[in-house]
Design a binder for these strands. Structure first.
Lengths: 234, 234
DNA sequence: CGGCTCATTGATGCCGATCAATTATAGTGG
DNA sequence: CCACTATAATTGATCGGCATCAATGAGCCG
């Protein structure tokens, strides 16, 4: 089961600069003594919340990675987003809606549980928070639009290649952790395990990339980019 | 070219109850004399803005329908959203980003052009606006997630059927305008013209639906629903 | 070691894209 | 009003990409 580690201490929080409280002057934090979110640990076999649950809390990811998924009654699953440290999630309650997806850890994670009511109050009183959240929603929306383009207009190899490029962006050919199984990559890109596996094997053979226990390394961005843009796109 | 019809008069606006100013007390509107958005007309062969343009204005749709599209260099296009009366769009500027998609009328439209700076000021001073916008962003995000599930996890017939059901939702079998060409439906659902045409013809033959110059009528929601849930989903 | 899950690889089949031809539909100008 | 053109929709034939089915191999843990 999930495990409450203790109360959070925003003032000394290591990842505050990544959170929605980044822009908030530290002085203000001192004033907000009433706000003491819980830090909670989840194992990969648990879920933080389920699609359809009443959205009583929002969360900030402190450690690890989280996948947000939607599942059809027949079991087909789509990953709609992968979260990283500092990301806010589970905020459907702000629109008086239940959670629209399920949040599952990809490894052991640590989150900050923010009760909806308190967070709303805090947001109301601090325009910096308001502003940061707004910018993030817009960014999410933009990413969602990008993803729709991927899913609707690109073919398998293009989707996979541009996903890998995006995942390793800015790392200049060094090793990057990719804690997603073949199946999960498939669920993210609307492909089957086999298709993902085939292309990856292919590209490893061609020397475009390297893989070792959950980490990958792009050896030829150009090679991948050529695949991603096979039909003349980018 | 686009045609500025004149200055907007928020106080007497017919569609204000659908806009982001819905929750704003009318009294407050009187105070905001400085804010006088332009009402602009666009023809179907123009665009309101292009993907990549600096986002200087946001817009509220007053009349007609708008499609938001993203296009790959090779020409493949994805419709990421279809807008209706009252919808706010083109707000990327709030996150200091250029437009992420292109906005094109599906018919002659009338929009309210809201200069970013003024709108931001207005939002800052009126929590009701802030709140309404926030709720809408979250709703958009939810819809985007739903769409990703459609595109990633469903097959052609399922996507098309559930799209039609959604489009005609709550109209109880009466005629509904559908001002999208086969090609545009395809661009929305990640399908080709031919595939869309084939299924529609098929379903018309089976008596599931009826069509007449840009309007459709669902005669058997059950029939369609069975197609949409062919693999046991919903 | 044996049992588990995950990844790989091959063989086959089907869905939907592509190519191609015909038929509506709307708009234009004589 | 009708012929003429342009565009959209339909329908058929074919092809190929990806899913599906199936078997084997690799890593991991008790």
């Amino acid at each position: 089961m999930s495990n409450v580690k203790g109360k959070g201490h925003c003032q000394s929080c290591q990842i505050r600069h990544l959170s929605i409280f980044a822009q908030l002057p530290t002085v203000r934090l001192v004033e907000i003594q009433a706000f003491q979110p819980s830090v909670v640990i989840y194992a990969p076999d648990e879920t933080v919340y389920h699609q359809g649950d009443p959205a009583a809390n929002a969360y900030t990811l402190r450690k690890g990675l989280v996948k947000l998924t939607k599942t059809l009654p027949n079991g087909r699953t789509q990953i709609v987003r992968v979260l990283r440290t500092g990301d806010l999630f589970g905020f459907d309650g702000f629109a008086s809606e239940p959670y629209n997806h399920t949040a599952t850890p990809l490894s052991e994670i640590e989150v900050c549980r923010l009760p909806l009511g308190e967070l709303m109050e805090l947001k109301k009183q601090n325009p910096e928070i308001e502003n940061t959240m707004m910018r993030r929603w817009i960014q999410h929306l933009r990413q969602a639009e990008d993803m729709m383009l991927e899913l609707g207009a690109k073919k398998a190899s293009e989707r996979l290649a541009s996903f890998l490029i995006r995942w390793c962006e800015g790392t200049g050919g060094s090793w990057v952790v990719l804690p997603l199984s073949r199946g999960e990559i498939g669920e993210l890109l609307g492909l089957t395990i086999e298709t993902v596996s085939r292309f990856l094997s292919d590209w490893k053979r061609q020397g475009f990339l390297n893989e070792q226990r959950g980490s990958i390394q792009i050896q030829s961005v150009d090679g991948l980019r050529k695949v991603a843009c096979a039909s003349g796109n980018c």
